[in-house]
């Protein structure tokens, strides 16, 4: 089951990264990790460094992707963002995006949504 979740997550992240590239985002990093946590995708668009949280849901899961994000989660991503900025010496605009990916029974992407600049 744990393995399954990871696989589903990977699949969503790949789909999300593709979508971002198609939209003209430049992917700087996938799965940025340090000892405090991780960010799914770090991308660049315009003047912004965008920290992307990808939420993937399969057919048999209840709820919608946006219901999986709360203020606490956003705060964690924001803090990770500041750590990333420190590490790479970025001193400019930042923002958090959320991408929701729906998978059908066959494990294919049935729907994908991109919410820019998510704030709670």
């Amino acid at each position: 089951m744990k393995q399954d979740n990871k696989k589903v997550g990977r699949k969503g992240e790949v789909a999300a990264a593709e979508l971002l590239q198609k939209k003209g985002y430049y992917i700087l990093e996938r799965n940025y990790q340090n000892k405090w946590g991780e960010v799914d995708i770090v991308a660049r668009v315009g003047d912004y460094r965008v920290f992307v949280e990808v939420k993937t849901k399969t057919e048999d899961m209840y709820g919608e992707p946006w219901e999986m994000i709360d203020a606490h989660k956003l705060k964690r991503v924001e803090n990770m963002g500041y750590l990333w900025c420190d590490e790479f010496g970025w001193n400019g605009l930042c923002r958090i995006d959320v991408i929701g990916v729906w998978l059908n029974e066959e494990g294919e992407v049935s729907r994908i949504e991109h919410w820019e600049n998510v704030q709670l």
């Binding site: 003047d47 001193n91 400019g92 923002r95 600049n117 704030q119």
Partner: peptide
């Protein structure tokens, strides 16, 4: 009535808030 200074700063760094 008292005068109130309304200062607005829009920073070009960090996360939107």
């Amino acid at each position: 009535a008292r005068e109130v200074m309304v200062e607005v700063d829009v920073a070009n760094k960090g996360f939107p808030a």
